[in-house]
Computed example of a mutant assay.
Amino acid sequence: MVDTVVLKSGPHRVLKGSPWIYRTELEPTSAQPGSVVQVKTREGKVLGQGFFNPRSMIAVRVVAWGAQTTVTDDLFRQRVRDAADLRQVVAGGRDAFRVIHSEAHGIPGLIVDKYGPMLVAQVTSLGLLPFLATIWQALTDVYKPVGIYEHGDLSVRDREGLPRENRLVWGELTSPVEIHEHGVRLEVDLLGGQKTGHFLDQYENRGKVAALAGGRRVFDAFSHTGAFGLAAALHGAESVVGIDIDPEAVDRANSNAAINGVEQRTRFVAENAFDWLRRESDLGPQYDLGILDPPAFTKSKQSVPQAIKGYKEINLRGIKLIRPGGFLITSSCSYHLSEPDFIQVIQAAAHDAHRAVRIVEIRGQGPDHPILPALPESRYLKCLILGVGK
């Protein structure tokens, strides 16, 4: 028997197709955490079914819309197949890409990435637990992986009432694995790397760096394991310096440089990128192409003002480092910082740097990370290509 939760009166986003319903939008209910619930309006209209968890601010994540569709194992089997069909179009030929992108594929709280022979998953919804065995089987049927590894040491799982643990859920574990991007060979640590091991959402933007890199001096700040800088080096950059605060990531970047035979033109250093940008920019323009790909500076609306200061600082320094006629590729993965606000940050940074800057292109996450129009939060990555003048 499925419990029912009732929306309070009001202009809720779920009425326009958003899959998120907040605790404050619901009438009191006795439904249990992790259960599947039916969602109704106060007038009795059935909106659909979803996962319920009052521990989370997002109390309901809608899975099935309308009165006729229900949350079943068969539904998730079909969702996995539908996502795989889309991958044939948007990621065909790649050996590393996002397989399941949570709400955008109708499986809230599930991220799955493919790295060569391995699948790596993140589960952040208590309601998914009864269906995981079916989902793992559906994924193995489609992708035939060597193994599926769950990266579960995530703080968000605390709010869901899920244990923080990493575990092999199917098959055998292979790590590190080698993947390929724009001709670059990359070793990815599935156990100790950030996110699920790599930043797959920037794949297309690294291709843009490769196209711009020929003959240029390049810096890659917040370089992680070197994917942006190595794309530049392999596609003709004169020199590349990468900066990241994580010594293990820097070691991996230098190892990846050697694997690709570009170690003579690349140098990855373990240093605070803020400190490096400040020191180097005081010496004046030195580079023709720069990449700024920092971690999220804010995960809440309350900390956006402080995050803006951080984004302005690194972009001001980055702009100062670029010679006239060069390019700065700058990103924000903080979905609480909107694209218009990010552009305002760039304008303010350019003004204070006393440099002319033009936005040549506005980009974002790749098509294997699709966006729900009714859920702006699913468009989290902003990437701007800036032409820098005098």
Rank of each mutant, 00 (worst) to 15 (best):
K208C: 03
E181I: 09
H180P: 01
G183W: 14
A210Q: 02
R185M: 03
L186C: 03
H224Q: 13
G193A: 01
A213K: 05
Q202G: 00
G193I: 12
D220I: 04
R216E: 06
R217E: 13
A221K: 04
L186D: 08
A221P: 00
D189I: 07
D220P: 03
G215M: 02
L191E: 12
H224L: 01
R206C: 00
A221M: 08
Q202I: 09
T196Y: 10
R216G: 05
A211R: 13
R216V: 06
Q202K: 13
Q202Y: 13
K195T: 04
Q194D: 02
L191C: 07
R216M: 08
Q194C: 02
Q194E: 12
R206L: 07
R185P: 00
G214A: 15
L191N: 00
E187L: 12
Y203E: 00
L191Y: 06
F219V: 09
L212K: 09
E178Q: 15
K208D: 01
Q194P: 00
G193S: 09
G197K: 10
Q194M: 12
E178W: 08
G215P: 05
L212T: 07
E181A: 01
R217I: 11
D220Q: 06
E181S: 02
Y203M: 03
R217P: 05
Q202W: 14
G214N: 14
V184F: 13
L190F: 12
F219S: 02
D201I: 06
S223C: 15
I179M: 07
A221C: 08
D220H: 09
D220M: 05
G193L: 10
A210F: 11
H180R: 15
H224M: 04
S223L: 04
D189L: 02
H224N: 12
L191Q: 07
E181Q: 13
G192W: 13
A210T: 06
V218Q: 05
N205H: 05
A221N: 00
H180L: 01
H180E: 14
H180C: 03
G215S: 08
V209C: 00
H180M: 08
N205F: 10
V184W: 14
V188Q: 12
R216N: 04
A210K: 07
D201G: 00
F219Q: 05
A213G: 02
K208P: 01
Q194A: 02
K195H: 10
E187M: 12
V218W: 03
G183Y: 08
G183P: 02
G214Q: 14
E204T: 12
V188F: 11
H198K: 04
G183A: 07
G215A: 05
G193W: 15
